[in-house]
Design a protein around this nucleic acid. Structure first.
Lengths: 139, 139
DNA sequence: TTCAGTGCAAAGCGTTTGCAGGGTG
DNA sequence: CACCCTGCAAACGCTTTGCACTGAA
């Protein structure tokens, strides 16, 4: 598979190695969409036994440093990871029902532009907006 | 002091009581500006001995539910609390140096308006924008 | 006198670390 | 065969909880 080849090369160029765990964890993130480290672990364990939590944390860190995955905070608890292949997007989270909707980065264009004028470069893909959807606002 | 009186009434009307700890913790948040629970604890202990961490957590929860304090996430670690008396503002955090700047909520007006059209009510005061300031971007 | 609030200690959750053994390149 | 990566277990930081006692109203 050429995906595997690309991944190996990406790792090699940083002096890192391709291992079954690393490949499985990246595929799990791509497959799950938005997943916490714990959910990634559970998914990987469904395929192969004995993958350790610390390996998941270490691997997600590596994959993120290579720009292959990204994380956002959708709750006060664990972060969620998603593939960097997905087009960049903003997350809006309802505090009532927990529903997450994805927004086009364009939605924050003027916020980004305003801060850029001030010399600040916004990481749009990390932006999480909290609030209430209409159903939850009505109680 | 009329501040104390107002606080007592606010608590009483929810069937809650005013205690020295609650008053000290609220004053600490107002005095510190942006503080983690740990920093609040340290500050309160500087004035009166033997205040417990769990009391700080429980009290911040109570004060937030009464709308007297607010919290935002300025790092992947502990949240920071600030007085609800401060005018509502957005936080921009530099990932390089950690510097925090406050923005007028107006900066996110079009983001808020766009989501409102979609039936989503944004909690602007909870918004944290991450990125890099010009100094850190230049490495 | 009542019952909300506190301190204390222990447990909880998510995450990180040290180390020795295993597997990639 | 060098050295990166893994599993394991223990420790970590922050937060929550159960309980008996204290103290506000």
């Amino acid at each position: 598979m050429s995906d595997e080849r690309r991944l190996r090369d990406r790792l090699r160029s940083s002096g890192l190695r391709l291992t079954p765990q690393r490949e499985l964890i990246l595929r799990a993130v791509e497959h799950l969409g938005h997943a916490t480290p714990d959910e990634v672990l559970a998914h990987v364990r469904g395929q192969v036994a004995s993958v350790n939590a610390s390996t998941v944390y270490r691997t997600l860190e590596v994959l993120e440093s290579l720009g292959l995955v990204r994380h956002v905070h959708l709750s006060d608890r664990a972060p969620t990871y998603h593939s960097a292949r997905e087009p960049e997007h903003i997350h809006a989270v309802c505090r009532g029902c927990g529903a997450v909707r994805s927004l086009d980065p364009e939605a924050a264009a003027s916020l980004v532009a305003g801060l850029a004028e001030d010399g600040f470069t916004v990481d749009v893909g990390h932006l999480s907006v909290f609030g209430w959807c209409s159903a939850c606002l009505a109680e």
